[in-house]
């Protein structure tokens, strides 16, 4: 497998400085191994923390149940499902799978046009305040979303992207990413659907890194 790597920057929260990271246009055995070992250990610690805090299981981040090994197997050599990851300090900081074929835009201004659908995106457990209370690196989600926009532009889709947000991420997509909220979708586990136009994509990319 040929992997293309580009440079990006994350905020090291403890040191309050930007550190170099790499965006890979693939998810390989290395990332799945990190998920099975490093992510699993930190997730287990996070689940203990949530349980100790008395947070009911129904309110735990739903992505904790995602199995990236199965997703990687299902996406292997499938052209419409490219994977991406963010690496920093030789550890996987975030994972994402896109869908390039099965979704079309729903916003009236771009209805029926092609877009890149963000099927799954997740930051490492140590980058999630909702799980472990603190954050090691900030900016993983933004980098991955920008990768989705870049893919959309490269495919001639104009930067248009769409996704169904897990409840804990809705506010981030709405306010930080500037995506349009198209309401709950009964056809997709009642998750809220968000879409980004070419203009919104331009604005998001131009904004660059923001805390």
């Amino acid at each position: 497998m040929t992997v293309d790597v580009s440079t990006a920057y994350l905020l090291d929260v403890a040191q309050d400085k930007l550190v170099e990271a790499q965006v890979w246009d693939a998810i390989t055995d290395q990332q799945i191994n990190d998920w099975e070992t490093l992510w699993a250990k930190a997730t287990a610690e996070g689940m203990v923390r949530l349980a100790d805090a008395g947070i009911p299981r129904g309110k735990w981040p739903q992505s904790l149940r995602w199995n990236w090994q199965k997703k990687a197997q299902a996406s292997q050599a499938v052209l419409f499902k490219p994977g991406f990851c963010v690496m920093c300090q030789d550890q996987t900081q975030g994972l994402m799978y896109l869908d390039l074929a099965r979704y079309r835009a729903r916003l009236p201004s771009q209805y029926g046009k092609h877009l890149v659908y963000v099927d799954f995106v997740e930051s490492a457990p140590w980058n999630r305040a909702d799980l472990l209370g603190g954050v090691k690196y900030r900016g993983v989600g933004s980098i991955l979303l920008r990768a989705a926009i870049e893919m959309s532009r490269a495919e001639n889709f104009g930067g248009r992207i769409g996704l169904h947000a897990l409840p804990q991420s809705e506010e981030w997509y709405r306010t930080k990413c500037g995506m349009t909220d198209l309401d709950l979708d009964p056809g997709k586990q009642n998750l809220r659907y968000f879409e980004m136009t070419a203009q919104q994509a331009d604005a998001f990319v131009a904004k660059g890194y923001s805390k």
Partner: peptide, 17 residues
């Protein structure tokens, strides 16, 4: 509103799917 390459790449993805 796509170029020829994009249409053919999309067709290939769908064919494979």
């Amino acid at each position: 509103e796509l170029n020829k390459t994009s249409v053919l790449r999309q067709a290939l993805r769908l064919y494979q799917l």
